[in-house]
């Protein structure tokens, strides 16, 4: 079923594509390859708000997982936990990163294993700007992020 949604041969550097909605631009959407489909996957992205109004990322949806949600890894007193993030602020004039060790999309209930080179869509819902769907590139298990030509990844 999902095979129709997953592009198995994604063009190189899918994650470098920039998607826009209102004043927001969304780029560096990537995920890490998984070992099978029984463990949750992850979703990372960068959002830049070029406008003058604060916004917030309030949800994600994807056909790749049954229960995608926003999390934040926090280390308190030497203990790492991952509470839900109800809303991730995207303040006016600033960039926010979902990146390893911080905010991330947690893709629980994967429909299929994520293999390096796959890509899948994720729809981000912002409080003010509304929805935008991005292509997420699956990078290797060891990836720390996409390698993009333009600055600031």
């Amino acid at each position: 079923m999902l095979s129709t949604l997953l592009t198995l041969t994604a063009p190189a550097a899918f994650a470098c594509e920039i998607f826009t909605v209102g004043d927001l631009s969304v780029e560096h959407a990537w995920s890490r390859a998984t070992i099978g489909a029984d463990r949750p996957g992850v979703f990372y992205v960068e959002v830049t708000n070029a406008g003058t109004t604060d916004d917030a990322l309030i949800g994600i949806a994807t056909p790749a997982a049954g229960m995608p949600m926003l999390h934040e890894t926090v280390v308190t007193n030497g203990i790492a936990s991952m509470p839900h993030a109800m809303s991730i602020p995207v303040p006016a004039g600033q960039s926010v990163k979902l990146a390893p060790g911080g905010y991330h999309g947690m893709l629980t209930g994967l429909t299929t294993a994520l293999n390096e080179g796959d890509s899948f869509p994720v729809t981000l819902t912002f409080e003010k700007a509304g929805e935008v769907t991005v292509n997420v590139e699956v990078l290797s298990l060891r990836a720390e992020g996409p390698d993009c030509e333009h600055a600031g990844q």
Partner: peptide, 15 residues
């Protein structure tokens, strides 16, 4: 192993 963020990052570094 069900940890999608912290554990893979560290194991990737170890690798």
């Amino acid at each position: 192993t069900n940890c999608p963020d912290v554990c893979p990052t560290t194991l990737a570094e170890v690798a």
